[in-house]
């Protein structure tokens, strides 16, 4: 083929004038690479920037935002106290919830049919009931059992409490959040455990490492990689879910701003106070998430 075409070229050349000698092509190391242009990127960026500018302009000029009220209440004492309660509920809910999850997940993965079905039922029930319904339920526990007793099951009791004194509004809120959280945490932890390669357990078993130590040293640290992003998600969710406990008249952030705007009628700036605090707290959690993930990611980075 190439022979043929070079023959043809030879024929053509003899039939015409001698070809103009072309300028010597540049050597390969003289060639410059020109990156491709992306004009539509500029167009899209400009369009979005216009929209952002419009929004920012609105924030600054629309008197409805009422920034002076916003700043007046942002660090106000009752708001600070409410913020503390929100943090307490989040922290306690997360600790109790994940403690429950770490117990429920291995139960659900165990070969014991009783443990397995109890865990399964718990998760099923507490994921099914809306948090707000559950909270009201716990708050009204006194209607169901007016006294609670500590003692031998089906046998005599030792200590006796009035339900309403034992389960305060805050207690009911915490109980509801913790149980709700435990059900979700259990599934997050279970997903993490399942993500660990079966061969890791086998290697640990072959080394004769005791069961509990296997879980603590081999399984859980590896499961953490899969658990953390979901757990962080759940934690952010919990932070926001604490606003639901306003139905129990607990003075957390959302309840407190409602109280204030009920008094002064400045709804939007006060909702904004709560909103900005939630955003800040979520940002803090995201930073914590980043560092925790980095800790458990050791050995996975090159």
């Amino acid at each position: 083929m190439s022979l043929l075409s070079s023959a043809r070229a030879a024929v053509r050349r003899t039939s015409a004038d001698p070809p103009p000698t072309p300028a010597a092509p540049p050597a390969h190391d003289e060639l410059t690479i020109v990156p491709a242009r992306h004009p539509w990127r500029w167009v899209a960026a400009a369009a979005v920037l216009v929209l952002v500018a419009q929004f920012l302009h609105g924030l600054a000029t629309n008197p409805g935002w009422d920034w002076s009220t916003f700043f007046g209440y942002f660090f106000e004492e009752s708001v600070m106290q409410a913020l503390l309660i929100t943090l307490e509920l989040t922290f306690a809910g997360a600790v109790l919830g994940f403690a429950g999850g770490i117990i429920l997940a291995p139960m659900r993965l165990s070969k014991n049919p009783v443990l397995k079905s109890v865990s399964w039922t718990f998760i099923w029930v507490f994921r099914s009931v809306p948090l707000i319904v559950q909270l009201l339920f716990w708050a009204n526990l006194g209607y169901l059992y007016d006294r609670l007793q500590l003692g031998i099951p089906f046998g005599p009791g030792f200590v006796d409490f009035e339900t309403s004194s034992l389960v305060s509004a805050f207690g009911a809120a915490l109980l509801g959040l913790a149980l709700h959280e435990a059900a979700y945490a259990a599934e997050i932890v279970r997903a993490g455990i399942l993500s660990v390669d079966q061969r890791q357990m086998e290697a640990a078993a072959a080394l004769g490492i005791p069961r509990l130590r296997q879980f603590r040293r081999i399984v859980l640290p590896q499961a953490m990689r899969a658990i953390l992003p979901n757990a962080a998600n759940e934690l952010v969710n919990l932070l926001k879910s604490t606003s639901v406990v306003y139905v129990l008249a607990i003075g957390e952030l959302f309840y407190q701003v409602q109280v204030i705007y009920g008094r002064n009628g400045r709804v939007v700036p006060l909702l904004l106070v709560a909103t900005v605090w939630y955003v800040i707290l979520t940002a803090v959690l995201s930073v914590l998430q980043h560092y925790t993930e980095r800790h458990f990611g050791k050995g996975y980075r090159r």
């Binding site: 086998e202 290697a203 640990a204 004769g208 640290p221 590896q222 050995g299």
Partner: peptide
């Protein structure tokens, strides 16, 4: 597990603990 602790086992896929 105690018995296994006397027997070394080397796997085809190494199975080192990655963390």
């Amino acid at each position: 597990l105690k018995q296994r602790a006397n027997i070394g086992f080397v796997f085809q896929t190494f199975n080192l603990f990655p963390h």
